[in-house]
């Protein structure tokens, strides 16, 4: 008698199905977002340290590698946002009588709010 058999979990488990892979990808996006935040903090620090420091940092950010990084970080942020918004209907259950407000509407409200806020930010930034 060897008793119940426990199947090992391979370290590559997240490569075995698309959903797990996308999940890992979503988790991975946090790394990019975290890195982006660090760059942003340094930016603030440099700004505080004086004009020269700030401008050299801006040059550093303008380097092709850094631009590539920002593009990736933006994609990651978008991916995270979209997947997250698509999940909100699961968390937020709104009922009108016995009927549940359908998921697309709840997610839709999120997207709408997102567009409005983005437009607002764009307006503030681009105005001046």
């Amino acid at each position: 008698m060897t008793g119940p058999y426990r199947r090992p979990v391979p370290s590559t488990w997240w490569l075995h199905n698309r959903a797990y892979f996308l999940f890992m990808l979503r988790e991975l996006t946090s790394v990019f977002i975290a890195a982006y935040l660090i760059l942003l903090l340094i930016l603030l620090y440099r700004l505080n340290a004086g004009r020269g420091a700030y401008e050299s940092y801006l040059r550093f950010l303008g380097a092709p590698g850094m631009v590539t990084f920002h593009v990736i970080a933006l994609a990651a942020a978008l991916f995270h946002t979209v997947t997250w918004f698509n999940l909100t209907p699961k968390v937020l259950v709104v009922r009108v009588g016995a009927r549940r407000v359908p998921a697309p509407i709840i997610a839709g409200v999120n997207y709408a709010a997102w567009i409005v806020f983005s437009a607002l930010v764009a307006w503030i930034v681009l105005r001046g």
Binding site: Y20, F23, E27, K90
Partner: peptide
């Protein structure tokens, strides 16, 4: 729970 969401699927 880290919200993989596969249970629901």
């Amino acid at each position: 729970c880290t919200l993989v969401g596969e249970c629901t699927v």
